[in-house]
Simulated scan of single mutants.
Amino acid sequence: METKELRELVKEKRKALKLTQEDLAAKAGVGLRFIRELEQGKATLQMDKVNQVLFLFGYQLGPVPLNRNK
């Protein structure tokens, strides 16, 4: 499975559903600025808000091993 950055995943899923950033923000219950920062790869974001967005696409944040060979 290809590894994607969170920002890429969100942008890809949003576009596949033909949603604008404004639409996604409204559906997820977060601000437009948050969506923009998420898609730009801001390093510090609130996990609960990220999960609100990911939930719309059937995802959630979770632990990922640093060494994926294990």
Rank of each mutant, 00 (worst) to 15 (best):
N51K: 04
G29M: 05
R68H: 03
L66F: 08
K27M: 09
A16Q: 13
E12S: 11
F55N: 14
F57M: 00
I35E: 00
K4I: 14
R36D: 08
A43N: 13
Q40V: 03
M1N: 12
G29K: 09
K11M: 09
R68C: 11
G31D: 13
Q52A: 10
E5S: 12
E8N: 12
A26C: 07
L19M: 15
K11L: 07
L19D: 01
M47I: 15
A26M: 12
G58N: 09
K27E: 15
V64N: 08
F55Y: 10
Y59T: 07
V50N: 03
E39L: 03
K4T: 10
M1H: 12
A25S: 15
L9V: 09
L45G: 06
I35W: 01
L54D: 04
G31L: 03
L6F: 03
F55W: 11
A26W: 00
T3K: 15
R7I: 03
A16I: 05
V50Y: 01
R68F: 13
M47G: 04
T20S: 15
A43E: 15
R33W: 09
N67V: 05
M47E: 13
N51M: 05
L56G: 03
K49L: 10
E8C: 07
Q52R: 14
A28D: 12
R7K: 15
E37T: 11
Q52F: 02
K49G: 05
K15P: 00
R14M: 02
Q60M: 08
G41M: 07
K70H: 14
L38D: 03
P63E: 05
M47P: 04
T20V: 02
G62D: 03
L6K: 04
L9C: 02
R68M: 11
G58V: 04
G41I: 07
G62S: 01
K27C: 07
G29H: 04
L45T: 06
P63M: 03
I35M: 02
E12P: 02
N67I: 05
K27D: 10
R33Q: 13
T44G: 08
L17W: 09
M1W: 08
K18G: 05
N67M: 11
A25V: 15
L45Y: 05
V53I: 04
D23E: 09
